[in-house]
Structures are given as structure tokens and as C-alpha cells.
């Protein structure tokens, strides 16, 4: 069966189905992370005065800054991979997509190092409220990075076959994967100052 509106826009929405689909999914993601941000605000405002620690007390700001730079850079390579397909340059697409996945690995390695160091110091989610919400938010975000890496890995590997038969459809798929990846970057842009700098 042919899946409708993969390339051309659906007349009533004006967008291909996959694009509306990913935005609906991202809307649900906003609510998921929003609920946890809201919990953070509640926990912080509900804490006894002067007891909420500055992120710096427990967390490594330079490492998180490095991770912020890595993730933003990966967003640029992601959008460049899509632009390369638009310019009909598959080799450049593979290069940029490869770099995006590599950046994902870099982010996860830094995060694993951070987590490992906390555990060595005996700091766990159960240790205090701040660490509980820190591990919840960054853990969920890390899972999203991992998910994005799997999708991107598929599109640079077996999924790339579609380029030969239906290039426009493949380009749209990469754009949709990109929208998700940028969203994960966007969440981190808010997580970073909230947890580490305030």
C-alpha cells in the first residue's frame, strides 16, 4: 500500500503528513518536559529558604558548557545534512550526518563521565531533592539523545537506500529527524542554565 502525502503537501493541512506528525509528537514532548520543569519549580520554591543548592555545588559547569557546545554544533551539522540533500550532494549529507551522530556520542560520553563522577562521590538521585530532579531531567534528556542517535544512525545506514529510489521522500525523512534532534537541543538549552547555572 502506498503511504499518502510523504512528499507532496496534504491539501487541507498544507504540509506532508510526516511533518504534522512530528510536530504533534513534539507538542507532546513539550508537555512531558514541561511537567518536569514545573516539578522543578515546585520543588525549588517549596524548599526551605537558603537550602536549594547552586548547581555549581554538585555539578561540573565547564563539562556541561562543553556539552552545550557539542549539542549546538550537532544541530548545525544536522541541518547542514538536510541542506546537502536539498543540494543533491549525498556525500556531504553522509559527512554531516556522520558528524551529527559523532557529536551525539561525544555528548553521551561527557554525560556518562559526569554521572560516573557523581556515583563515585556517593551522590545518587536519592541523596537530595536537587539531585533527584537533576538525574530525572538529564536522564530523560539523555534517553532522547540516544533515541535521536539511533534514528540518525538508521538514516545514514540502511535507511539511506531510499535516497536512490525516492530522494525527495528521503530528504523529508531527514528533515523530520532533524526537527526532533533540534528539539532535543532546545530542551538542553533550557536544562543547562536551570540545573547548572542557577
Amino acid at each position: 500500500m502506498e503511504i499518502p502525502y510523504t512528499v507532496e503537501a496534504r491539501p487541507d493541512t498544507g504540509v506532508p503528513n510526516a511533518k504534522l506528525g512530528i510536530w504533534l509528537f513534539l507538542a507532546s514532548e513539550v508537555m512531558l518536559f514541561g511537567a518536569l520543569f514545573s516539578s522543578y519549580v515546585l520543588l525549588r520554591t517549596g524548599a526551605a529558604p537558603g537550602t536549594w543548592p547552586h548547581g555549581r555545588v554538585f555539578l561540573n559547569v565547564p563539562l556541561a558548557t562543553l556539552n552545550t557546545i557539542i549539542l549546538i554544533a550537532s544541530s548545525v551539522t544536522m541541518v547542514m545534512s538536510w541542506a546537502s540533500l536539498k543540494l543533491n550532494d549525498f556525500k556531504k549529507y553522509r559527512l554531516y550526518m556522520g558528524l551529527t551522530i559523532l557529536a551525539g556520542f561525544g555528548f553521551m560520553i561527557v554525560k556518562a563521565f559526569e554521572y560516573g563522577h557523581k556515583f563515585e562521590l556517593g551522590l545518587f538521585p536519592k541523596s537530595n531533592t536537587f539531585l533527584a530532579i537533576y538525574f530525572t531531567l538529564t536522564g530523560l534528556h539523555g534517553l532522547h539523545v540516544l533515541g535521536g542517535m539511533i534514528v540518525n544512525g538508521y538514516f545514514v545506514g540502511p535507511g539511506a537506500k531510499l535516497w536512490r529510489t525516492q530522494p525527495e521522500r528521503f530528504t523529508n525523512r531527514v528533515e523530520v529527524a532533524g526537527l526532533y534532534w533540534h528539539f532535543v537541543d532546545l530542551v538542553w538549552i533550557f536544562l543547562f542554565p536551570t540545573l547548572y547555572l542557577l
Partner: peptide
């Protein structure tokens, strides 16, 4: 990020309503 990387600076109405 939203305006440029996610192309929201020139997107269809349905996406704006959704957002």
C-alpha cells in the same frame, strides 16, 4: 534554534496553530 534550524520562520499555518 526554532526559527532557523526548525524552519519555523517560514512554516505553514497549521504548525503555528498547533504550537
Amino acid at each position: 534554534v526554532a526559527a532557523f534550524f526548525m524552519h519555523l520562520s517560514h512554516e505553514r499555518k497549521v504548525i503555528y496553530w498547533l504550537l
